[in-house]
Amino acid sequence: MRQISYAQALNEAMAEEMRKDKNVFLMGEDVGVMGGWLGHTIGLYEEFGAERVIDTPIAESGLANIANGMAMAGKRPILEIQFGDFLGLAFDAVGNQGPKFRYMSGGELKVPAVFRSLQGGGFGAAAQHSQCVEAWFMNLPGLKIAVPTTPYDVKGLLKAAVRDDDPVLFLEHKALLGVKGEVPEEEYIVPLGKAKVVKEGKDVTIIALQNLVYHSIEAAKELEEEGISVEIIDPRTLIPLDSQTIFSSVKKTGKVVIAHEAPKRGGVGGEISAFITENCFESLKAPIKRVAALNIPIPFGIPEKYCLPNKDHIVKAVKELV
């Protein structure tokens, strides 16, 4: 099968959905003529023109609410917020407005908007350009959250998100943009709410998000050499969360490590951990371990590595369990 990058897969998903449905369009800062600040929207402006690939002023809050208004009017906007960190500026629109209108209108209104944003470290870009922000949005009814890891998933999940009638916060990891993987030429979608078993194993379950999935794969190789077999699960979406896939793995291994790049305190690891404890307590043979960032603003440059989780942290956590 052909191999393409995460960025190309993302680009293809948008192009295909825009060709399929005239109500789908892309808007955001520098998504048009420039082709995206990391080149991930190259070619879309040329194909679809300025009315469907819209370069906007810098106004995250206003734009996200504009996307809500467009979606209520029957459009399917994809709004790019350049950095996940900037979602703080659009928090009310993404979390508190769009997700509420279906319920508050008694089902009459829907808000099929996709809020795409690039999150995560790896660029040494300091505390306000490097964060993983999924946990900021976990406490908001009505919103869905996708956290794609592979080129295959970013394409399939984004297509599903565009077709979904609910607002979806779609958080891509910017350190993964260049990662290549198998992506079929044929049409497919990855449904929201289906986790992936990345690797089967029997001793410990690792539930990992995005970049930490790759670190987990590396950790697994090292652990296999010592005779420890890990199972790796990538939830792919946090709302909805595929609890069944997680629970069946936990019932098999009885030991869990949850790994994500956002800080541990208040991170989604706590939520997933509580969910497992509430539902699979009898199967647990040890306390659940979390591998996550330190509670420190991500430092500029090379020292970010002292604060972000990596393969070694995962290996250590697994060894503490077996």
Partner: peptide, 23 residues
């Protein structure tokens, strides 16, 4: 259209709606 519970939000929602009408 719905009046948001948060002040000032109506303006960008209205702009989004108007933009869709123009499209």
């Amino acid at each position: 259209l719905p009046a948001s519970g948060d002040l000032g939000v109506g303006a960008p929602l209205a702009v989004g709606y108007a933009w869709a009408l123009k499209m």
